Amino acid sequence: MSTDSQIVFYDIASNAPLRTFAPNPFKTRYALNFKKVAYRTHAIDMPDIAEARLKLNAPANRTLPDGSAYHTLPLIHDQFTGSVIGDSFEIALYLDKTYPDGPQLFRPGTVGLTAALNSRVDGLFTKYVALSDSMPFPPESKDRINKIFAARFGLKDLDSMKMSASAREAMFVEFEHALGEFAKAYRHVGGTTDYVWRPSGTAAEQAQNQGREEVGPWLDGDGPAYADFIVGAWLGHMAESMPKEDLARVRSWHGGLWARIHDALEPWREMR
């Protein structure tokens, strides 16, 4: 068996040129490239994901509001071991365990902390995912994809999800504040008293630790770990799915922190 196809990475198909744009597949893209394992990408049109997973005996990893199974990507099929893993976090754990000679995605003793961060970050960005309303789906599949999203959110159609200009602006303001609170993690400050982000930072009389002077791009250490890829995956999703003027706005927030993180992760976004 040729090593260039040892792992098959199932990603969601985009319009041309093919690229990763959904957050969970982005986590796996980063992980595979960081680990330097041999893999190739197999793009699946979103309406065909369930069929692809069932063929590989991969159970659904989500549930729709009506209780029915919802099949998503990423998924990897390691043709060397025969393993099929259909969850981004489980894929990262599998890669570290199965290919220990490469760089480690999880630093010693951090799996539980990283799992908690994964949940926190997914919840934070999902709350504002409606701002990423320009996802690059193949045009020939958009009608079928719209029906899938309507079912996922328990809606008759997607038109009811459209926001007015004023509602969108209000969501942007709230998103900036939410990211400002999360940015404290990069400064190594807790902000346990001042829960409301402000441009000047935590009020001086409330701050118990001024934190690091240089903020980002990594949460800890001199290089990335899987925790950084979790954040980067959502930033990558926004970069591919937000109107350019909105993306530029996010990149400018909090001293350009989000731009620095996204740009620093560029070496691990390679498509294979």
Rank of each mutant, 00 (worst) to 15 (best):
T114R: 02
F34S: 03
A13H: 06
S14V: 03
A233H: 02
A150Q: 07
D101A: 10
H254N: 14
R107Q: 11
I85Q: 01
H188T: 06
L158T: 15
A150N: 08
H188V: 08
G211E: 13
D194I: 02
I230E: 00
G236R: 01
A204D: 14
W234S: 02
G191T: 07
V121Q: 02
A60R: 01
L247V: 00
D11V: 10
F9S: 05
A207K: 10
G255W: 07
K244G: 10
Y99F: 15
A130R: 14
W253V: 06
P65N: 10
S68N: 12
E174T: 09
P199M: 06
G232R: 04
I91L: 05
L75H: 00
P47W: 08
L158R: 12
A58K: 09
P136G: 11
G191C: 08
L18H: 13
A60N: 09
A92R: 02
P138H: 00
G201C: 06
A116V: 10
S5L: 11
H188E: 12
R260A: 15
H77P: 05
A50K: 15
M161I: 08
A115N: 09
A92H: 00
L265K: 06
I49R: 01
P100L: 06
Q79M: 11
G256L: 00
W218I: 04
S14N: 07
I230R: 00
G256Y: 05
Q206W: 15
P59D: 03
E240L: 09
Y30D: 01
D246E: 13
K55A: 12
L158Y: 00
K142H: 13
G102N: 08
L257V: 06
R144A: 15
K35E: 05
K35S: 05
D143I: 11
Y186I: 03
T193C: 14
P243I: 05
L124T: 05
N209L: 09
E214H: 13
T28Q: 04
S241D: 07
S88T: 03
R260M: 07
Y128R: 04
P267Y: 13
D222T: 10
